[in-house]
Design a protein around this nucleic acid. Structure first.
Lengths: 201, 201
DNA sequence: ACCTGAACACCGTTCAAGT
DNA sequence: ACCTGAACACCGTTCAAGT
């Protein structure tokens, strides 16, 4: 059986097949983050989950900070995908804006811990710029359609900032003055949709 | 010298005067937070700074989480004071709203680490409800004046969410698509001031 | 009463030694 | 090559012993 499909480069050292992978590690990290919180996202806990000892993780990841960044990046990518997928269904720009905002909020409710990682202040985690840009592409597109090209970036930032701030405060329990949080969100989207619309002159 | 001003309740044990205080501990925590980041806000570092060993801190504070909450609470109080002080100068509601927003942003730039603690997602820190309410009182007042009593709370939440979100994203370096961040902020306040104004019918 | 050293359980990380 | 145990420096926290 020369050159069978199981053949390996001859002479190369290959004692055993890899027992884990970067993907598996990041996935374990994401699961732990959501189930145990950021403090539970431990090198030891991740290692056990992928069937390896903690020191082995350092073969695929520089340190815990990099692992956390990779988890945040994966989260940003998933958020972008969900938002993009939701946007296509809406017929016009204003309704698309509302669908985007509600999808954004829904994602945060589904994955609160991961969402908290995205723009976490003072965390120094470096999400890849392209990934972040990708996840805000739909926002930018709606903003351009709604506000015109001159104000596209400003509008997108206003919208994203509001949505992020609202959901962050909601998740951290900052809305304690009672009232209907759901209604406050809808109030916000509607007023913003009007406020960002292009105006004469 | 019977009953001099140095007299102490007789019979009570009082071997030595206290070597530190809760205020001193919280102050040390705030300084460390800003200079070293949240990870540098260590029980040991705080203890050394107030001239004591780490175990002694547990006489005034239940654990590190409570200390961090106290730091956040002090920060919320200071933010509220600054915002309130700034609001009085502005002549009318729309300009008051802009002054509030800019003061809010200025505070975040001055104390980025402490600001990051305020509504930090997933942090589980319990800021005293009254303190938080106090720090948003000015926001609520302007919102009521601008939007009318029916929409005061919704407007205040829209405004606060936007301001918090904008500054958080700014501080975490999320605005990477270039453009003028300063201009984006001013764009946001102006559009929001218009959007939140009471409307006919 | 407040303060301390010593101890414990737990981190992240490094590294020489195994396969 | 990947994996491991052992070790290191550092945490937060507890507690008995000092004063």
């Amino acid at each position: 059986m020369v050159n069978s499909q199981n053949e390996i480069d001859p002479g190369e050292p290959m004692p055993t097949p890899d027992r884990t992978s970067l993907d598996e590690i990041v996935s374990a990290g994401r699961e732990l983050l959501e189930s145990e919180g950021l403090a539970g996202l431990t090198m030891q806990a991740v290692a056990i989950r992928v069937g390896v000892r903690a020191p082995s993780l350092y073969k695929r990841v520089r340190n815990r900070a990099e692992l956390v960044s990779l988890v945040a990046e994966a989260t940003a990518r998933e958020l972008g995908e969900r938002v993009d997928a939701a946007a296509v269904a809406a017929p016009d720009a204003p309704s698309r804006l509302m669908v985007l905002a509600r999808t954004f909020r829904g994602f945060a409710h589904d994955r609160p811990a991961a969402f908290g990682l995205l723009f976490a202040p003072g965390s120094e985690l470096a999400i890849d710029a392209d990934v972040l840009a990708g996840s805000s592409a739909s926002m930018l597109a709606v903003a351009a359609e709604l506000s015109g090209p001159d104000h596209a970036l400003d509008s997108a930032r206003t919208l994203t900032a509001w949505a992020y701030g609202f959901v962050s405060m909601e998740l951290s329990g900052a809305f304690r003055l009672g009232g209907d949080v759901e209604r406050a969100f809808e109030f916000g989207v509607h007023r913003l949709a009007e406020a960002l619309a292009a105006r004469p002159a």
